[in-house]
């Protein structure tokens, strides 16, 4: 894959796909307000394109490690093709960055919107207890997902790059603080991955029983 192709993909994703999604969420918000329902959180994750989260997870270093070790029985037979066709995994982690940033923007927009409107939503009488629990669980999964994203190796790398530019000696500098706060999250990346995955599964069970899906 050449550089021009990556540039093209990046421009399409950032300037076309993400604004379209945000616009869709905003429109949904306005429609919901007109109908008297409180906010976009009423629609919740259904408004967000799950495909990006799925792609993010599939290209994640941790997921690939888990899948290849457990499905393909490494170390003697990891998930590699024949040496003639195997060209490395550069494309995978290249795209992981794109999916990372799209997911990050989407989940942040969702969380900010939910944080503002969740208390009112939980106090309303329009929703039953199961639907209220679903809303709360959605918000909780969103927070875990943000923690999962914050522990990403890409973020670690960015903070490392920032750290290199820090003047020496430096006490209590913001770059060091950022790096030190992110490092434990990076160590727990795998745990947050599993909590997010099981959280999403639980959420869908709640969706089904709450009447949101199907």
């Amino acid at each position: 894959m050449n550089r021009k192709f990556h540039k093209f993909i990046f421009i399409v994703l950032v300037f076309v796909v993400v604004p379209t999604m945000i616009a869709k969420i905003v429109i949904a918000h306005e429609e919901n307000e007109q109908e008297g329902i409180l906010n976009i959180a009423a629609e919740g994750f259904e408004q967000i394109h799950w495909i990006f989260f799925v792609l993010l997870i599939i290209t994640c270093y941790y997921f690939r490690y888990v899948a290849e070790r457990n499905i393909f029985n490494s170390p003697s037979a990891c998930a590699l093709q024949d040496s003639k066709t195997y060209k490395g995994d550069r494309l995978i982690y290249q795209f992981h960055r794109y999916f990372f940033w799209i997911s990050f923007v989407l989940i942040t927009v969702y969380l900010v919107a939910s944080a503002v409107t969740l208390p009112a939503l939980l106090s309303t009488t329009e929703l039953n207890i199961l639907q209220k629990t679903t809303k709360f669980l959605e918000f909780f999964v969103g927070i875990i997902f943000i923690l999962y994203l914050s522990g990403c190796y890409h973020i670690k790398y960015l903070f490392e790059r920032l750290l290199e530019k820090e003047p020496k000696p430096c006490r209590g500098c913001w770059r060091s603080t950022l790096y030190e706060k992110q490092s434990p999250l990076n160590d727990l990346h795998g745990y947050f991955f599993w909590i997010s995955v099981f959280g999403v599964i639980a959420l869908h069970i709640f969706f089904i029983f709450g009447g949101h899906v199907g």
């Binding site: 070790r69 490494s74 990891c78 490395g88």
Partner: peptide, 9 residues
């Protein structure tokens, strides 16, 4: 380096 597929063996 790109040939490593991060299986952490």
């Amino acid at each position: 380096v790109k040939f490593c597929n991060v299986t952490r063996c």
